[in-house]
Design a binder for these strands. Sequence first.
DNA 1: CAGCCTATGTGACCTTCGTCACAGACACCC
DNA 2: GGGTGTCTGTGACGAAGGTCACATAGGCTG
Lengths: 221, 221
Amino acid sequence: MLNPDTKSRLLQKYPLLLDLPIPEMENLVATSSLFKLAAGTVVFDENQPCQGFPLLLSGSIHVIKSAPSGRELQLYSVNPGESCILTSSCLLGHTRYLARGIAKAETELIVLSPLVFNALLSTFTPFRDYIFGLFSERITDLMELISAVAFQKLDQRLALLLLRKSSPILTTHQALADELGSAREIVSRLLKGFGDQGWVKLGREHIEITDQAALKRFVEL
Amino acid sequence: MLNPDTKSRLLQKYPLLLDLPIPEMENLVATSSLFKLAAGTVVFDENQPCQGFPLLLSGSIHVIKSAPSGRELQLYSVNPGESCILTSSCLLGHTRYLARGIAKAETELIVLSPLVFNALLSTFTPFRDYIFGLFSERITDLMELISAVAFQKLDQRLALLLLRKSSPILTTHQALADELGSAREIVSRLLKGFGDQGWVKLGREHIEITDQAALKRFVEL
DNA sequence: CAGCCTATGTGACCTTCGTCACAGACACCC
DNA sequence: GGGTGTCTGTGACGAAGGTCACATAGGCTG
């Protein structure tokens, strides 16, 4: 059961729901509830069955694949207003999760039951279009990721990752390594290299891009 | 315009269309046509806009990402009765292709215009479910692929690839390398290794698995 | 300030792959 | 059979990254 304030925040992040017919909306409000997750919470894990479909109000969820060796690789992240393609895929294919989801900050989300999710999909065209649209975006992302992992060198991937974050970047080398699916030492070495080139300035949990243009040129190479 | 024979073959491969209402079916038959592609034909290429949605009657299409260096990696393949997730994604997201599709054998396919595709999606629930289902399968595949490329060694990936094909495998080392995103020499070397272990017997364009159990054990490792 | 925890720098070393350069080997066709 | 093109085997070599083992350095807390 969602309270009116939560409902209005939901509609603000997912405006397409504004057009939802009254009875469906009431059903949604009645059967859903708000969850608050602390940063670091494991939202779902590999091999776990899928409980429902998340709508993010705040925070973000990183979807991660991890190797037996302990190394990790970030597949994509879910932000407010978006949806989790992996969950959709689980619900639609009736399979289990094959990656882990972790809340990267304090995160608020509403979980739709599989029933409500399916009902929305089949009766409410805008929702269907929305899900389809996100599916197709994610697939694009995943394919880019595949070609990056398969063909690009780590230095370029790291440079690109830095460019995608907003300059002063407050994070550890380990976290960057996990996003790239590599090891901490390698990232440290490469960052050192970037620093020597004058492209970045390094500090503890702090990376500042000092020559964005050069970094970009390096990525395009 | 499809002739009656083609139409019945279409329905055989895609039985869900049997339930399509008469007018939609007539529209589909009237506006579509059958294409025959020779093996090796490029069905679509990177950066090309999407022309329509393919339904395969025979043959198969391999979807490939290729690197500037000339190396390739197979993302997945499309067989009769299946659909091309990448095309769906292009049609739904109104973006361009970001991979190449190649007919791997003589291939017959029917192309639905974007109009018909969208109409089917919004009016015909079974079709929508079908597309969603395939989407979710492919996403699973893509994620597996990512984790294989990122974390697995090539020998294991090669062994798995062999196990997935039916022995005797009639193909060149180069083709295997392209599927894996690697180089021909590496594949030759690894196969030689498998041969020395007594797991396979090698010949020109011919690989026979002689100890499936051992190969499996090696993959599980 | 001392102690401690975490993040980072760094060198040595190894494995895996990729690249290059050929040498055979097989198949096919005249 | 000889010529030709494709496929395969192989050795040498190098580059990229991963692993290990520490050293060092910030920053927090008692």
